[in-house]
């Protein structure tokens, strides 16, 4: 089993294999995005309290979910790279950081735009908003560390340790609305109870979440491919590839 894992986990195989996946993932993402946006912005009814304004949920909530999910991917990939020295895992972690930072930023900005009309304020320092802002700083710190360290192996190790230290923030973000009094409301969907959102509004939200997931999968593979080329620039197969391109 490990042989299989090492064979397909090798940078070269990953590079060849991922090329096939990217267009498919991207295509599915596009279809889901069109379906989700139509469902969310056109078909879903307005909310009984917030009217049409609640529709920002279709960007805000999937972005916030992705910001947490990508961090977990980054930390897991970092740990895998640290323990088993899997080069592909290091490349995936490094490729994930800017995407995670973007989704975190998007969640914060859309939340702020949503907060002004509904709550009456752009920003408050409650536990949910503050912990999400810390997540953005963790991503930015990770990215800064990657650019600050020239040796890519060392950078990957340092980044993995930072990512693992920051993992503690993930449950804090998720449970902040339950552990403390916050201005941000409690979970609508990610709880043991039935979701507190009408099915006609829930379906487009889940489609959007799936679309964001496919977007991440497509772009992270694409980015990881470039990371691998850069990491392996002195290896025989990359030189061969360059030779082929030059003709």
């Amino acid at each position: 089993m490990f042989e299989y894992f090492y064979k397909y986990g090798s940078p070269r195989h990953f590079y060849d294999l991922s090329k096939m996946f990217v267009p498919w993932l991207g295509g599915i993402c596009l279809i889901l995005l069109i379906a989700g946006l139509t469902g969310g912005l056109v078909l879903a009814p307005p909310d009984y309290q917030q009217g049409e304004g609640f529709r920002i949920i279709y960007v805000h909530v999937p972005s916030a979910w992705m910001s947490l999910f990508i961090y977990m991917v980054m930390a897991t990939a970092g740990a895998t790279g640290l323990i088993w020295k899997v080069k592909v895992a290091d490349a995936l972690a490094r490729a994930s950081a800017p995407l995670g930072a973007s989704f975190t930023f998007l969640a914060l900005v859309t939340g702020s735009l949503w907060g002004k009309p509904m709550w009456g304020t752009w920003w408050v320092w409650d536990a949910r908003l503050t912990s999400e802002l810390i997540l953005l700083f963790l991503y930015l710190g990770y990215m800064a560390l990657q650019t600050a360290i020239d040796d890519r192996r060392t950078a990957a190790r340092a980044g993995a340790i930072l990512a693992l230290v920051g993992v503690v923030n993930i449950p804090i973000i998720h449970y902040s609305v339950e552990w403390w009094h916050t201005l941000h409301q409690g979970p609508t969907i990610t709880k043991l109870d039935a979701p507190s959102i009408h099915i006609s509004m829930l379906v487009p939200l889940l489609i959007m979440a799936l679309a964001f997931m496919f977007y991440y999968a497509a772009v992270v593979l694409l980015r990881a491919r470039y990371e691998i080329l850069e990491n392996e620039r002195n290896s025989a197969w990359v030189c061969e590839l360059i030779e082929q391109r030059r003709g």
């Binding site: 009456g120 201005l183 409690g186 979970p187 609508t188 507190s196 959102i197 009408h198």
Partner: peptide, 18 residues
């Protein structure tokens, strides 16, 4: 000196609420 609204986690169409 400041009043903020805290909305809940329930979302539903007006007809369902009615």
């Amino acid at each position: 000196s400041e009043v903020l609204a805290k909305h809940d986690e329930n979302y539903m169409p007006p007809e369902v609420a009615d």
